[in-house]
Design a protein around this nucleic acid. Structure first.
Length: 845
RNA sequence: GGGCGUUUAGCUCAGUUGGCUAGAGCACUGCCCUUACAAGGCAGGGGUCGGCGGUUCGAGUCCGUCAACGCCCACCA
């Protein structure tokens, strides 16, 4: 083929050019005819589609792409899908803010509704269906933008294999898995106290909690013994005295030994409650006596359950104390309650403090403290505990047998890096309950169940009506169960649809099943499952990774993948996790514009597996420089001949020496990539390449410009080396390598075979020759540099002192050395290495 | 309170099973427009490898201990 090498190769426009070509040529299309052992399957993380991608996202995705590209070149057919995680709260919140709307399920659907250009303030209330339509619309827009970013960065995804966690296929898969879990008893509903976000008005799971240090105040408050003597407690939540069901102290606490099994009365309300003993009561905290309320915190729930205490809940799902006076507060107690009923907890707290101060039951002033408070990780106000009916998937949090099985799965999984497995272990060991998957939200996969309503209008939750597989996906709030008529919805003798949706993890825990088409393409499923790798961040080991293991364990009785490759985070200069909320956003496309996609990829691939890395823009510039260097190196290597020169022409010792070193680089880089250490492979290739350009290329240059067999040897060696380097760099710098490859080869470098040691058969010489002459050349250069003269300065004599072995090696490439050094003569003496260069005097004229 | 990780040149980081004078890039200094490359290239200065103790012929590398930083987990009275 005719070579068409630009005079001044550059990086501009490579991204668009090659993205289009790869798309047209279906370069990364998955071949569904391959068998499982020929396939490398990746369980790609579906990015959350709620806003924009930042450099932190790019980091992990590029690293995964290097695995995909390496495996593809090594002969595997790579199954590399892309998903969008668009269901769930992040999208709902984004839609609420973007349009200024609020979902109100009680409103009817408005077919003519369209959002206003500017966000409404206050929010405009719209129906559930209108709200969901907005969610779909906005996520579709975002997904287009995301795909553009990924394409520009050169992710070798098969773009025909995409899914969204809210699309019909994902919903069908998710609901089918739910129903299977239900049928096998791995999933159940329970009415129980749950952690509850009062703003989102939904239950949340253990995995979604985080502690935040918040200000609060200890109130020392007097309860009263039957004889009127006070018993003091300390609490940060005096508003819950009306919910108090007992006081508790440690059984070994001598101060209260005589009080156990007696009763006391609450201040203001005068409700009689027992004084009980439990080992969780901490004698060191406060007065050693705690007030048990239903429910102020998770310890209250433990005490309530283990001590079999009554329920006196007043906190409503919206975070307010209920308006109506509870039946356990008769008469005057009820009147006092009237002062706080209807208030938010924090308002009621202040009110109670002043009421208690007036009655003399508050000791001194409340003492300000800061203490950890549980929050929903996406929430803004402390969680409350509300009793409600929720769905749970068993996860070993209440069952030691299952817990052991899941710990064993963690042992079985290959972790990269290895220490990440500890995080899984600790999480599973620390589980306190089953996995709560139901959410009282709108934009998600519906719980696929209805419930019969009997003649007395009682909903029978224990005997749900289950849809057929053919009905999936269903929305029980609008679809009708078989055997019923829509008019029977909510009627005696009719049915009620479950209004809840599943948490987004309940669906994204099925990404292998969704991408592999478990329910509708058994042929594909068999070829890709279990998958090879699950790439993801370490922050979601407890959620996404663990949940996926749980679902696969139940559904298939095996691990969903062989290996988990855990990537680190990008930290900003203050060493905080880089994310858009931190305000340190420059978009990935801005960086592509400035440093090229290959420059950005170089930066991402330089970060060690699993290691958090500080963002340093300089790294992108270095990547850009390497990319340009590769283009120029290719231009040089291909500049001597319009046709390929056979490797049999390679005869010169310097050339075979260079190839011997390159072979070692190939072996090292391959071993690193096999162990998922892309950064090490890149580092090896990069060092080797810079040495190649600095030393070998300079040494061979004069000979290469000549004619004859020695020149032919140089041409062939340059071409072979270039071919190897382009393939070595292809997983990291797909654009420049493809560009240079296209100058002289047919087809894509990304479908070329990964370089192996076999390719060097017959062309490998003594590796030491290149080192020997390079070190001498380096000394000559130093002499010229010390003399502050040009590298072109002629040298009259190079006197080398070295051991016999070095001399022997150097002599084999003496002509190349003399030419590169511009030296007329070289002499050798035995001894410790030293080089004396006699520079020509007239060169500086 | 438990656990994990990090600590190597001014900065960002490599150093694979312990092995000759500890490396790279940036920054800094000097030189060079040399026919692949001046948004380059060549060369140079710069480090008691966090502290202490140990194993060993030999320790940045293994063991113990302490410290700082980061992250994860933990029952909020």
């Amino acid at each position: 083929m005719t070579r068409n090498i630009p005079d001044k190769p550059g990086l501009d426009g490579l991204e668009a050019k090659w993205d289009e070509r790869w798309e047209n040529d279906a370069t990364y299309r998955f071949d569904t005819s391959k068998t499982r052992d020929e396939i490398f399957a990746i369980d790609t993380p579906p990015p959350t589609v709620s806003g924009s991608l930042h450099m932190g996202s790019v980091f992990g995705y590029v690293q995964t792409d290097t695995h995909a590209r390496y495996r593809r070149m090594s002969g595997k057919e790579v199954f590399y899908p892309m998903g969008w995680d668009d269901n769930g709260l992040p999208t709902e919140r984004r839609v609420q803010n973007y349009y200024g709307v609020q979902c109100d399920p009680s409103l009817p659907y408005d077919p003519g509704f369209s959002p206003s250009d500017e966000p409404n303030d206050p929010p405009f209330h719209i129906s559930r269906r209108n709200f969901i339509e907005l969610c779909h619309g906005l996520t579709a827009e975002d997904e287009e933008v995301f795909e553009h970013v990924w394409r520009t960065l050169g992710l070798s995804v098969d773009w025909t294999q995409t899914y969204a966690t809210i699309d019909d296929h994902s919903r069908r898969t998710s609901q089918k898995a739910f129903l299977n879990n239900l049928e096998r008893g791995e999933l159940y509903a329970q009415e129980a106290p749950v952690l509850w976000d009062i703003d989102f008005q939904t239950a949340v799971a253990q995995a979604e909690l985080e502690d935040r240090e918040k200000g609060g105040a200890y109130h020392e408050i007097a309860f009263h013994k039957p004889n009127g003597d006070p018993v003091y407690i300390e609490t940060t939540r005096p508003e819950l005295i009306c919910s108090c069901v007992a006081l508790v102290a440690h059984p070994d606490d001598d101060r209260y030994r005589d009080m156990f099994d007696s009763s006391v009365t609450t201040p203001l309300f005068g409700v009689e409650v027992p004084f009980v003993a439990h080992h969780l009561a901490d004698p060191e905290k406060g007065t050693g006596v705690a007030m048990i309320c239903t429910f102020g915190d998770t310890t209250d729930v433990t005490w309530w359950r283990e001590l079999d205490l009554p329920t006196r809940a007043v906190i409503q799902p919206d975070g307010r104390l209920q308006e109506e006076v509870p039946d356990w507060l008769p008469g005057q107690a009820g009147e006092i309650y009237g002062e706080i009923g209807g208030l938010f907890a924090n308002q009621a707290r202040k009110k109670m403090a002043s009421l208690l101060a007036n009655s003399g039951d508050l000791v001194g002033e409340p003492r300000q403290i800061t203490h950890p408070v549980k929050f929903y990780e996406k929430g803004d106000r402390p969680l409350e505990i509300v009793t409600s009916r929720q769905w749970y998937i068993r996860n070993g949090g209440r069952d030691t047998g299952l817990n052991r099985e899941l710990l064993a799965r963690g042992e079985e999984l290959h972790w990269v890096p290895e220490f990440m497995g500890v995080r899984y272990k600790h999480w599973v060991e620390g589980l306190t309950g089953d996995w709560l998957i139901s959410r009282q939200r709108y934009f998600g996969v519906a719980i696929p169940l209805w419930y019969p309503i009997d003649a007395n209008e009682i909903v029978d939750y224990d005997n749900p009506i289950v849809p057929d597989d053919s009905q999936l996906p269903v929305d029980p709030t609008s679809d009708t169960p078989k055997g019923f008529d829509e008019s029977q919805r909510g009627q005696p003798g009719g049915f009620a649809g479950d209004r809840d949706i599943m948490d987004t993890w309940a669906t994204s825990s099925l990404t292998p099943q969704i991408a592999g088409h478990w329910i509708d393409d058994p042929d594909l499923w068999e070829r890709v499952f279990p998958m090879d790798i699950r790439p993801q961040g370490h922050d979601i080991i407890r959620t996404w990774l663990f949940a996926t293991v749980v679902r696969s364990h139940f559904e298939h009785g095996e691990l969903p993948w062989e290996t988990a490759t855990i990537n680190g985070w990008i930290l900003d200069p203050e060493r905080k996790k880089m994310s858009k909320s931190k305000g340190n956003v420059v978009t990935p496309l801005d960086f592509v514009e400035k440093y090229s996609a290959d420059g950005v990829r170089y930066w991402a691939a330089s970060g060690r597996p699993g290691t958090d890395t500080a963002f340093e823009e300089e790294q992108l510039r270095i990547g850009r420089r390497l990319a340009i260097k590769i283009l120029n190196g290719a231009r040089f290597a291909l500049g001597f001949s319009d046709t390929d020169v056979e490797p049999t022409a390679i005869t010169e010792p310097l050339d075979t020496s260079m190839l011997a070193q390159l072979k070692e680089t190939v072996v090292g880089a391959t071993a690193a990539l096999e162990e998922y250490d892309y950064a090490r492979a890149l580092d090896l290739a990069e060092r080797s390449f810079w040495d190649w350009t600095d030393d070998y290329v300079e040494l061979v240059k004069t000979r290469a410009y000549d004619d004859g067999p020695a020149a032919e040897s140089a041409h062939a060696a340059l071409q072979l080396a270039l071919s190897v380097y382009l393939r070595l760099f292809a997983p990291f710098l797909p654009f420049v390598t493809e560009e240079a490859w296209s100058w002289w080869k047919d087809g894509s470098v990304h479908r070329a075979s990964w370089p192996t040691a076999d390719e060097f058969r017959g062309v490998v010489g003594e590796a030491g020759i290149l080192d020997a002459v390079s070190s001498i050349l380096g000394e000559v250069r130093r002499a010229k540099s010390d003399a502050k003269t040009s590298m072109r300065t002629e040298v009259e004599l190079v006197e080398v002192t070295a051991d016999a072995e070095t001399v022997g090696l150097a002599k084999q490439a003496e002509d190349d050395l003399l030419a590169a050094a511009r030296a007329a003569e070289i002499r050798y003496t035995d001894g410790e290495f030293a080089v004396l260069s006699t520079l020509a005097q007239d060169s500086s004229s």
